[in-house]
Amino acid sequence: MLYDRILLTGAAGLLGTELRKRLAPKVKFLRSTDIAAMSDAAPNEELVTADLGDLAAAEALVKDIDAIVHFGGLSKDADFASICRVNIVGFQSLYEAARLAGVKRVVFSSSVHAIGFYDQMQIIGTDVPARPDSNYGVAKAFGENLAQLYWDKHGLETVSVRIGSCEPKPSTRRHLLTWLSFEDMWQLVERSLSVPRVGHTIIYGASNNSATFWDNRLASHIGYRPKDSADAWQAEIHTADPHPGREDIVNRLQGGIFAK
């Protein structure tokens, strides 16, 4: 990777926990932060409990940092006031602190929910207009736009990863198209921190599933080559759900239940 000193936000969450153990061996220094307490720091890891909504706290977190892997914030939909405070105001605080500190790059965990109102029959590229399916999706669309602003105006690079369904294994028919394994998630982060130039790149975060509604050709320069696939669970999922409701939003829209 190009960067030696990394800040990981959301480090106590499901995906953050997976990234902590993979990032620490790859960098000289890892600062892991979350609003929740953590334990078992690696020898080169600093654990910090902090609220990103506080600009002063964000400025302290980014001190002497080269790049940020931003997986912090609320991970599910909520009322707009809560989403705004954490996923919008907190996000802006982090970017402004990063700009002031001279951080070079951010890997941002965006989401399928930024484009969740596209139909599952549509194959979409990374350049389509946002169609958020929830308050959570609105915040992710805001994050992508803020990342674009900070690249255009300040030269702060970002890879916005529109994560699909990142969990140990797929469990629904929709996941057969959106599933992202932990190893492929890590590959996306590692590649995003290794490519010499990214500007602001949007990329879909999905494994090598045979069925998909996402086209990543405009992000080919990242060099992401997913190795896992939801196909191994196809028979199991079809058996559990043999007669899906074709008009059910979960089976009709890319964002699934968030669009309800």
Results as ranks from 00 to 15, higher is better:
residue 61 L to A: 08
residue 76 K to P: 09
residue 184 D to Q: 05
residue 155 G to Q: 09
residue 28 K to M: 11
residue 194 S to Y: 05
residue 254 Q to E: 04
residue 232 A to M: 09
residue 86 V to W: 08
residue 178 T to V: 08
residue 38 M to P: 02
residue 243 H to S: 10
residue 238 H to L: 14
residue 233 W to D: 06
residue 167 E to R: 14
residue 236 E to R: 05
residue 156 L to T: 05
residue 141 A to W: 03
residue 72 G to E: 08
residue 124 I to L: 14
residue 149 L to S: 13
residue 188 L to Q: 02
residue 14 L to P: 07
residue 143 G to T: 01
residue 107 V to A: 05
residue 81 A to T: 15
residue 213 F to Y: 04
residue 119 D to W: 13
residue 202 I to T: 08
residue 102 G to N: 11
residue 126 T to Q: 06
residue 153 K to A: 11
residue 144 E to D: 10
residue 212 T to G: 10
residue 84 C to I: 08
residue 10 G to V: 05
residue 229 S to A: 01
residue 50 A to E: 14
residue 18 E to H: 13
residue 136 Y to L: 06
residue 217 R to G: 03
residue 211 A to Y: 05
residue 118 Y to L: 09
residue 30 L to F: 10
residue 41 A to M: 01
residue 219 A to W: 02
residue 73 G to P: 10
residue 111 S to W: 00
residue 116 G to M: 02
residue 77 D to M: 06
residue 67 A to I: 01
residue 192 S to I: 03
residue 8 L to M: 13
residue 178 T to Y: 14
residue 130 A to L: 07
residue 58 A to N: 00
residue 37 A to H: 02
residue 172 T to E: 06
residue 34 D to T: 01
residue 180 L to V: 03
residue 116 G to Y: 04
residue 203 I to C: 09
residue 184 D to Y: 02
residue 108 F to S: 00
residue 144 E to G: 00
residue 144 E to Q: 06
residue 6 I to V: 14
residue 197 R to W: 07
residue 33 T to P: 10
residue 50 A to L: 13
residue 105 R to T: 05
residue 117 F to E: 15
